[in-house]
Simulated scan of single mutants.
Amino acid sequence: MTLHLLKLCVGADSIADLEDYQARKRGQPVHVTRMVPRRAEDLLDGGSLYWVIKGQIAARQGLEAIEPFTDSDGIGRCRLVLDRAIVRVRPRPFRAFQGWRYLAPEDCPPDLTSQDAAEMPEALRSELAALGLL
């Protein structure tokens, strides 16, 4: 059964910030977290990492691998290997939380298509979503 992760995108004020950050890094995009997801098999069965940016679920990236490792301080960590494509989703409010959360497929916001305003400026898209117009 496919399952997704929901994570705060700390330090990014927009999807463009996330894209810029990942573009500056060489190689495959990864996100390092402290805990290893217990349901890794379900996450790797077509799952994505959904990013919460400025209080809204705003984008997602496909999960390609989950790699537990030990850092230089001897602390267990987990590397989430992400697809390069950042897919915009229909913005949906979500309050802050620590760590990550599992997200069932039926709870995921739909991807934006060009007809849904994927090309619209992010600030306008967020405002329209907050007003219930998107």
Rank of each mutant, 00 (worst) to 15 (best):
V87N: 02
L5I: 14
G132D: 09
S48Y: 06
L124H: 14
V30M: 14
P29Y: 00
I66S: 08
K25V: 01
L124M: 15
D83C: 11
K25T: 07
E106Q: 13
R88D: 09
E19N: 06
A23V: 02
A96L: 15
D116M: 14
K7I: 15
S72D: 04
K7D: 01
I86F: 05
E119M: 07
F97Y: 07
P68I: 12
D42A: 13
T2H: 08
L3H: 09
V30W: 06
Y102C: 09
T2S: 11
V81W: 12
P105I: 07
V89T: 08
A16C: 04
Q61F: 07
D116F: 06
Y21Q: 01
F94L: 01
L82N: 09
P68K: 13
D45R: 12
Q98V: 10
L8F: 02
L43K: 03
V87G: 02
D20H: 14
D71Y: 10
G132E: 08
A118K: 11
R26A: 09
P68V: 00
D83W: 07
D71V: 07
L8G: 03
P91G: 13
I66V: 14
K7H: 13
T70M: 03
R60G: 06
W51T: 03
F94W: 10
D107P: 01
G132Q: 12
M1A: 14
L112M: 14
E122K: 11
D17N: 03
D71C: 05
G74Y: 01
R39V: 03
P110C: 06
R88Q: 14
R101E: 00
G47L: 09
A117Y: 02
Q115L: 15
W100C: 02
G47Y: 04
D17R: 04
L43M: 05
L43T: 00
D107V: 00
P37I: 07
L3Y: 04
A23C: 01
P109D: 04
V87T: 15
A123G: 05
G62R: 12
L133A: 11
E119N: 12
L49A: 10
P109A: 05
R38Q: 10
L5D: 01
R79P: 06
Q28M: 12
Q98M: 13
A40S: 11
Q61P: 07
I75N: 03
I75E: 00
G62Y: 10
D107K: 05
I86K: 00
R88A: 15
K54P: 01
F97P: 04
C9A: 13
P93T: 04
Q28W: 06
W51C: 00
R38Y: 11
